[in-house]
Computed example of a mutant assay.
Amino acid sequence: MLLDTASLYFRAYFGVPESVKSPDGQPVNAVRGLLDFIARLVQDHRPDHLVACMDADWRPQWRVDLIPSYKTHRLAAEATGNEEEIPDTLSPQVPVIERVLDALGIARVGCPGYEADDVIGTLTARAAGPVQIVTGDRDLFQLVDDDRAVTVLYPVKGVGHPQVTDNALLLEKYGVDGAAYADMAALRGDASDGLPGVKGIGEKTAAQLLQTYGDLAGVRAAALDPMSKLTPARRRNLVEGSAYLDVAPTVVRVAADCPLPAFDPVLPSEPLDPMTLEELATRWNLGSSLERVLAALAHP
């Protein structure tokens, strides 16, 4: 089981009241919410291995070099204090989350120059057995692979009742499977990530083009083929978007070859550092949330 950790603690932050605080009055809603999520996931799915994948770099320079607008609106939000960016009461909780995960002995893995999505992509590529990816980010649907038993648990109604995303569900909802999802995402773009997409092509049109021409290379070839059935406007938009389409797939696709550090992904049955964990529990008022995690870990 691979956790898109930032996605989950961000969801926890907004799902648990800020009135949940440490003894000195600091909010710990994201910390406790994430612990509750982990307890429920371990209880419901019983993974043998669990990795909390981290953003060592949420806006890698190699992606920005290819598409300069990549996540620029988030930089602007950060500079202006826009609430869409990480709220001030969330960012101080992240180091606490990291210390608690370390004391529990739950693997926490990031890679300099890469996002958590890339860590997840790399670990998925390496996996010898089934993989469950827990994320609220649809970009990771590109990793769904029925042949390798890779599914995404997408918490539409929380982690207790996630959407179990396989190829059948992707085909039903989006008209493409996991293998074609990144191509669809490149064509349609994503304003939230600063990806412009191709003019006039939304999600449904992108799916239709991929169904007709197979993949992004096939769509681009059709745009250059005067005998293809593309409308003149669509052909023109695809050709004019060539520079973007040259680089978009590299930006959109998660990396599968991050140079990850050595780590132990085995889910612990007891805390790695109980003394530190006890100190953290007292310092940050982790209470029943930590107790639920410990109970879930102790009952394989």
Rank of each mutant, 00 (worst) to 15 (best):
V31I: 07
A186I: 02
A233T: 14
K199P: 00
S242P: 00
L170V: 10
L75F: 12
L140K: 08
G175M: 12
E83W: 03
P232E: 15
L297G: 00
D102P: 01
G178T: 08
P249W: 11
V266P: 00
W58Y: 14
E115S: 04
S228N: 13
T250S: 08
L143Y: 10
V94C: 05
A186P: 10
A149G: 00
K157G: 00
Q26W: 01
F263L: 02
L8R: 07
S192P: 13
G136N: 07
M227Y: 09
P249R: 06
D257Q: 04
V51I: 13
T282S: 14
G25S: 07
P265F: 13
D117Q: 06
D139N: 04
P47F: 06
S288P: 00
H161Y: 05
R253S: 10
E115Y: 09
D44I: 01
G113T: 10
Y213I: 09
G218M: 12
Q26P: 00
P249Q: 09
P23W: 10
D193Q: 06
P265Q: 13
K157L: 04
T151R: 15
A52V: 07
P274D: 13
D102C: 03
A233H: 04
P155G: 10
R59M: 08
G136C: 01
L277D: 08
T282Q: 14
A233L: 14
S288E: 14
L75C: 00
L280G: 01
G15T: 06
L143R: 12
A76L: 14
A207Y: 10
D215P: 01
A182D: 04
H161I: 01
P155Q: 12
D183G: 05
E278G: 13
E85M: 09
Q43Y: 08
V51C: 05
V198A: 05
R74L: 05
V28S: 02
V176T: 10
G158Y: 01
R99C: 02
S91C: 01
D145H: 12
D118G: 02
V159Q: 07
A281I: 00
A12V: 08
V254Y: 03
P17H: 11
V144H: 07
A248N: 12
S269C: 05
D193K: 06
D145L: 12
E240F: 04
A39R: 12
A243H: 07
P300Y: 11
D215C: 04
R63D: 05
A217E: 13
R138P: 00
H45C: 05
R292H: 14
R11C: 04
G15K: 12
G200K: 10
L286F: 03
